[in-house]
Amino acid sequence: MNAVALANRPEASTLPTTEPLVAIENLKVRFGDVVAIEDLSFTVRRGEFVSLLGPSGCGKSTLLKAIAQLVTPASGKIVLSDPNLRVGFMFQKPLLLPWRATLDNVLLPVEIQLGGSVVDVTDRQRARLMLDLVGLGDFADAYPHQLSGGMQQRAALARTLISDPDILLLDEPFGALDELTREALNEELIRIWQSGNTRLHTIIMVTHSISEAVTMSDRVIVFTDRPARLAEDVQVRCSRPRAPEDSEPGSIIKRIRTIVKGGR
C-alpha cells in the first residue's frame, strides 16, 4: 500500500476524545407537514465512530443531510466546533459519473474546488494514492460500467477521501451491496480510519443493521420511528476487530434489539 506518501498528517488519533465536535441542539426538521426530526439533541465527540440506527424512513438520513447542510432545520441548530472542519459525505449509491474513468471521478472534488484551473500532476498522484488506499489501484482507467457494485462504491469512497475530510458522513454507504462485499468494505473503512494515513478522525454512519452498527462503531444512537427522537445512546467499548458472534458485541446487539422492539 502506498499510504506512506500520505504521511505528514496531523497526529490522527482514532480514540474517542471528550472534545465535542458536532453538537446537535433541539433540532427539528420538517418537510411540509411531515415532521422528520423532533427535538433532537446529542453531541458527537472528536475521534468517535457513531452509528445512527433506526427503522427505515425514520429521519436518520435527514439528520445526516442536516449535518452536511443539505437540509435546513425548521428550528434548533447544528454546531460544528471548528467552522473549517472538512466534511465528507458518502451516499448509498456510488453516484459515479458514467462518462468519466475512475481516476477522473476521484478527481471531481478537486476540479470543483479549483474552479477554472486545471488539475495537475500532484492532484493526479493523490487520486492514484486514494485508489490504492481503497484497493482500486489497477482500475484507474476503467469506466464505472466496467466496475462491480462493490468497486464502484470503493471508487466513491476514494472520491470522498480525496477532499481529505476530518469527518465522514456515511448514508448507508454499502447498503445496496451483497453481504460479503459489504462486510469487506466495512473492514476496509475501519482500517482506513484507524490507519492515521488520512486526516479523517470522526465518522457518523447511518445504518439500519444492528450488528453492523455494533461491530463498527464506538457509539450507537438508536432512533424512534418518525419523527426521529433519541431512543437510546449505547456505548460500545469492545476492542476491534469485532464479530457479531463474540460475546460482548453479541450482548450489546441483543440489548439494542430489545430497545428497538420496545420502542415500537
Binding site: L70, F89, F91, K93, L95, L108, P109, Q113, G115, S163
Partner: peptide, 15 residues
Amino acid sequence: EYRELFQTLGASRAQ
C-alpha cells in the same frame, strides 16, 4: 442525488 453530491462538493451552478 447527483445534484446533492455536487452540493456537498460545493459546486457552483455553472460547474
